[in-house]
Amino acid sequence: MNYQTKSAITSIKRFPFQALAAIFLLTVTFLVVTILSVVTYSSSKVIKYFETRPQVIAFLKDSATAETISALQHKLQNDARIKEVKYVSKEEALSIYKDATVDNPLLGELVNPSIFPASLEFSLSDLSRAQAVIEEVKTEAIVDSVGFTASLGGEKTLGDVVNRLRSITLYLKLGGGFFALLLVGTSFLVLVVTLGMRIASRRQEVEILNLIGAKKSFIKKPIVIESIIYVLIGVALGWLITLIVILYIAPSAINYFGEIPILPRDPLMFFSLFGIILLAEAVTGILLATLGSNLALSRAGRKK
């Protein structure tokens, strides 16, 4: 261990309450950062869920042939506004119906595939274009009718559904962006203030070291190392507390949201997500600590 690292550790040991105050503030900051990271992940999953589930179903006429269906499917796939086009045959439609009525097998037995129309299901890259796309698809010769499935309940018209989904998506994106910005700004300020507090108490030391011939890098290094130690402990504690809380509430949350994948269900994916968050926080924390301690040091230098 080099002299500067030893010096940083000695400084932490000799002023445990200052160190604890700094670590506590940083732990709270990174606790909030971790929670919001998970919320951001879940929000993105909710948005993706609504964006990728089949939103539009074009029911096909019985007269549609395999060639005309294939031609329409190909046409839709080439439309930039449309994604994930899927053909559902009469048999598949019956199978879906039977799955949906599994609690009441009698309902399934009373029907045969011929009463279910084949369909083309697809989602839209942008919900605002739903109305136009549906109107166009309705004009296709083999299309009998078009249904829109993305209703969240309560909407009377397609316009209402689209508006509601667009509002939710917009709020999630705006809210996420705002919180992310707020958080980065707050984290940086907390870091600069916390580190500034430590450096202010060491201003005399900085002056003395200057007078006895210490280079700037020699003076900075232990302070930066000390800041990085605080940040890494803050990151680890904030992350660990969030992980424990999420592990505790995950079963209820996953159950509540049903098929919307707000959190990865595979343990490996779940811990990978948290691993990525930890790594990102550690890297961001080290960058902020280096930047923050340099800024706090230059401020201390100006106040001489």
Partner: peptide, 20 residues
């Protein structure tokens, strides 16, 4: 300047020892 000051040993009037 640091290199220059390293060649000078100085006993300051107010000592300037590191109190920590």
């Amino acid at each position: 300047l640091p290199g220059f000051r390293q060649k000078v040993g100085c006993v300051f009037q107010d000592f300037k020892l590191l109190n920590e």
